[in-house]
Design a protein around this nucleic acid. Structure first.
Lengths: 164, 164
DNA sequence: CACATTTTTCACGAGTTCGTGAAGTGTGTT
DNA sequence: AACACACTTCACGAACTCGTGAAAAATGTG
């Protein structure tokens, strides 16, 4: 397989994975950058690396990395004596952090339901439905947070099992 | 509080809740319809009820309920001898069903990661990252499915605790 | 069968989002 | 100081989404 073929395979995967991220609410370019940083072999990229790797304009990268850094999905570093930031995908707890933002969404749901219960009261069917919604969301959020917290240990346990 | 004030309170809540649904990826009108059906006191609505209740055109309702029915968040019923479908929010397991669609999204993530592992192989850093992504997603999906399945019993347990 | 009522389909206009190219900014090099 | 390089900001055009009004379809009623 030639160099170009491999690149094509990678970029096809990037688009496929980015599509799922987009369906989950992430804008296209941040989704591509994240997928690329995840699947390509380097562990540090300059903005230029990303632009060339994805074959898009540097301007598009600029906005995308800003969002990803603000979501803590990418880290920004600077090697002394160089003039470019380096973007690092800290893969160790990447998905735990990704889920942290999902959990915030869930919390906003919960708060919205709770505020509805307040203004509508629980003595009416609508209010009662909202109260149950709120309770379910609170339950689910606690369960998900617990599961996410459990993962690192679970992963290590599995790795150990494979070794032994 | 007058009739109109109450309506205003309801509609304000609908917009607030719908906003969170939209941020989670649902289009505006389905989000509004779902929020309205949840918070208003009726448990069955014709398309016309929804249009008047939300003060939007019937055309907008048409598309919205089709999506909600296809997501199984609304049921469609027909009273014999009437000429309108009735839309029913089956509140008993509404959020479990909602989460079922979220779990499908998670599964698509997982499949995308798995396909990446296949084409890139695990002998390279990118492929290894994808493999771990896939494992995490599989773990999380299993945990979430278990939590959702646990909820009905948990809810009943809580209700019983409040009684006794 | 003509009619009334309700819902659906369709085309449009308003508004938004996206990525680009071009210009601007900042920083280190000569 | 002038320059080279890398990134960021900005304005634009293309594409898409949303909800409406009007017309059409479906479905009972007189």
């Amino acid at each position: 397989m030639t160099e170009d073929d491999e690149r094509m395979v990678l970029l096809r995967f990037v688009e496929r994975f980015a599509l799922v991220l987009r369906e989950a609410g992430m804008p296209p370019m941040p989704a591509r950058v994240l997928a690329f940083a995840l699947a390509d072999d380097a562990d540090r990229y300059t903005a230029g690396d990303l632009a060339r790797g994805l074959d898009v304009s540097p301007a598009a990268i600029s906005g995308a990395v800003r969002m990803l850094v603000s979501l803590r999905l990418l880290g920004r570093e600077r090697e002394p004596g160089t003039r470019s930031d380096l973007y690092v995908l800290d893969d160790r707890d990447l998905w735990s952090r990704f889920m942290a933002t999902e959990l915030e969404t869930l919390q906003r749901f919960e708060e919205a339901a709770a505020s509805g219960v307040e203004v509508l009261g629980t003595h009416r069917p609508g209010g009662r439905r909202l109260a149950e919604t709120r309770d379910f969301l609170a339950f689910l959020r606690a369960e998900m947070a617990a599961a996410v917290a459990r993962w690192p240990a679970e992963r290590d346990r599995r790795a150990a099992a494979r070794e032994g």
